Simulated scan of single mutants.
Amino acid sequence: MTSTSCSAETSGCARSPSPSSRRPVPRPPRGGGGAPPSAHREPLIQIFISNRGRGPTATATWGLLAAWAIHDSEELVTMGGWLAGWLDRAGPRLRARFPQVPERVWDQVRVSPSQARIAIGAMGAVMAAAAASGARTGGRSRFYQPTLVGFGLQAGGHVAQAVVTRGYTPGVVTAPLVAAPFSLWAWRRLRASGVPRDGHAAVVGAALLLPITAAACHALARMLAPHRPR
């Protein structure tokens, strides 16, 4: 049985539905303004899709900093004790073998443990900046790519130092085992990920960047920790 109600403003009567015939009205989600849930998930999906291509290059970019840390940890641990007596032991033999080298050059070769730590720290800042630049650009950075190539090429310098000195030199173990293999792997990783590469420009950039950066780091170390008069 239903009840009826009439009003003066209306021309007819409206039936009031029975409680059993009423249906619940769906309520919009809180704070959503009535938008369907999929509309709120869409930006997250788009972010995921846009970041998928960065995954493969992350190991090649931030991995550069990790590989450098492993390599220079060897130098940091061994350089202090090695430098303390190396020049005194090998100096006379090297002077006799290379008499054309001026004496001031041999003086510049001498590096104190504190200078070595400062120089390694400064180089670490450069490597971190290069890795960050590579990660930000998906490996396309013109700063990151020459740094990556230079990191691999400097392994040859470590091996050459060991040959010249006829013995161990700091970094000679991890240079061919970590630095060179990682640089080659990361370069191939960039190609597999479709990242544009310019090998010639990277080699030229590395040839310019490596000595300038190394000289600047050592100059900073000598300025902050000058040699004491002997």
Rank of each mutant, 00 (worst) to 15 (best):
residue 1 M to S: 12
residue 6 C to D: 13
residue 7 S to F: 12
residue 8 A to D: 15
residue 10 T to V: 13
residue 13 C to F: 10
residue 15 R to E: 11
residue 16 S to A: 15
residue 16 S to M: 14
residue 19 P to W: 10
residue 25 V to T: 08
residue 26 P to K: 05
residue 26 P to Q: 05
residue 35 A to Y: 06
residue 41 R to W: 12
residue 42 E to V: 13
residue 42 E to P: 04
residue 52 R to H: 10
residue 52 R to I: 13
residue 53 G to Q: 10
residue 55 G to Q: 12
residue 58 A to D: 02
residue 59 T to A: 12
residue 59 T to C: 11
residue 60 A to E: 02
residue 62 W to Q: 07
residue 63 G to V: 05
residue 64 L to N: 01
residue 65 L to V: 03
residue 68 W to Y: 05
residue 71 H to W: 03
residue 71 H to L: 05
residue 74 E to A: 10
residue 75 E to N: 06
residue 77 V to I: 15
residue 78 T to K: 04
residue 79 M to W: 01
residue 81 G to A: 11
residue 81 G to K: 08
residue 88 D to W: 08
residue 89 R to P: 02
residue 96 A to K: 12
residue 104 R to M: 14
residue 104 R to A: 14
residue 105 V to K: 06
residue 107 D to I: 08
residue 109 V to C: 14
residue 116 A to Y: 01
residue 116 A to H: 01
residue 121 G to E: 10
residue 123 M to K: 01
residue 127 M to K: 04
residue 133 S to P: 02
residue 133 S to F: 00
residue 134 G to N: 00
residue 134 G to S: 02
residue 137 T to S: 05
residue 143 F to L: 03
residue 150 G to M: 02
residue 153 L to A: 10
residue 153 L to C: 05
residue 154 Q to R: 06
residue 154 Q to V: 11
residue 154 Q to E: 15
residue 155 A to W: 03
residue 159 V to E: 04
residue 159 V to Y: 03
residue 161 Q to K: 12
residue 166 R to W: 15
residue 166 R to F: 14
residue 171 G to Q: 03
residue 172 V to R: 01
residue 174 T to H: 02
residue 177 L to S: 07
residue 177 L to E: 04
residue 179 A to L: 03
residue 184 L to Y: 09
residue 185 W to L: 13
residue 185 W to Y: 13
residue 188 R to M: 12
residue 190 L to C: 02
residue 191 R to N: 10
residue 191 R to W: 06
residue 192 A to E: 11
residue 196 P to Y: 00
residue 198 D to L: 03
residue 198 D to I: 01
residue 200 H to Y: 10
residue 200 H to R: 14
residue 201 A to K: 05
residue 203 V to N: 05
residue 205 G to A: 04
residue 206 A to V: 02
residue 207 A to Q: 08
residue 209 L to P: 01
residue 211 P to H: 07
residue 211 P to R: 07
residue 214 A to E: 05
residue 215 A to R: 09
residue 216 A to N: 04
residue 216 A to R: 02
residue 221 A to D: 06
residue 225 A to L: 07
residue 225 A to P: 04
residue 226 P to V: 11
residue 228 R to E: 13
residue 229 P to S: 15
